[in-house]
């Protein structure tokens, strides 16, 4: 029994727990309304990596009908609130998952379906599989099982709804706040010159989510390799600037 208890179901809850209330009662009501709506309207992006994907169609269609809980499938990361990782994650796939996650607008939640996302499951010995998903992304809910039944999926989603409603589900902030940690793990797996076309640090700065854990040795390494990704700003006058995001290799050729 002890062994089973060790299987994480939720990642450690945020420090902010119980501290979500604002002093202004009106603002508080407003926040609560917003959180309620967020919990009742979840657009999900199902990143169908492994076997677990097969459990989603029954969960969505007439048997279990997720839409009655306000959960709808969406197509691109921009539109989605929750990222479902449905099974083992190979290293190549993980790159795409991280890009996808970074492109999603916050608040965003990650659900790891299947045991493989918890600890590698039966791919534990595989050289090509990223075993513990939460090392690379902040996972909100794990739904363990090989594979979990649709009931389990829905129950997991309901847990997430509860968390969102009560304001506890703010793991997405961790990614900005502890970016250095996550980036470090990613770099360990993908190599030093790992980068995505998204700019997490700028986003954290823009929305005031920077902490002293955001930047560190790993982000320093990133910034050494990364082409700066500033949005294209207007230029009316003499300002000349180079387009960014250029491939470094091409530059060397010049």
């Amino acid at each position: 029994m002890n062994e089973l208890d060790k299987i994480p179901v939720r990642q450690e809850l945020s420090v902010a727990e119980g501290n979500v209330k604002r002093s202004n009662p009106l603002a508080n009501v407003f926040d609560e309304l917003v959180r309620f709506c967020q919990s009742r309207s979840m657009f999900m992006l199902h990143y169908c990596t492994g076997c677990g994907a097969i459990e989603l169609p029954p969960a969505m269609t007439s048997r279990f009908d997720m839409e009655r809980l306000g959960i709808q499938p969406m197509v691109t990361p921009r539109q989605a609130d929750i990222l479902l990782i449905t099974g083992y994650v190979s290293v190549k796939t993980l790159k795409r998952i991280i890009l996808t996650y970074e492109q999603m607008p916050s608040p965003k939640y990650v659900i790891g379906i299947c045991s493989c996302t918890v600890n590698g499951g039966m791919y534990w010995q595989s050289y090509a599989t990223a075993k513990v998903l939460k090392e690379y992304l902040p996972v909100d809910i794990y739904i363990a099982g090989c594979m979990p039944r649709p009931e389990a999926v829905i129950s997991g989603l309901r847990d997430l709804m509860g968390d969102i409603k009560s304001g506890r589900a703010d793991n997405w902030k961790r990614y900005f706040q502890n970016y250095d940690h996550y980036l470090g793990n990613q770099q360990k797996l993908f190599g030093e010159d790992w980068q995505t076309p998204t700019d997490i640090i700028a986003e954290a700065e823009h929305y005031g989510l920077m902490t002293d854990q955001t930047l560190g040795e790993h982000t320093a390494l990133l910034q050494k390799h990364q082409q700066p990704l500033e949005a294209l700003e207007f230029s009316l006058g003499e300002k000349r600037e180079k387009i960014q995001g250029e491939n470094p290799r091409e530059k060397n050729n010049e």
């Binding site: 309304l33 917003v34 709506c37 967020q38 009742r40 309207s41 921009r78 609130d81 492109q103 607008p105 916050s106 608040p107 986003e203 823009h206 929305y207």
Partner: peptide, 10 residues
């Protein structure tokens, strides 16, 4: 409401 209340708007 949910869409308008997203915290990061890209």
């Amino acid at each position: 409401i949910k869409l308008y209340s997203k915290e990061t708007q890209i």
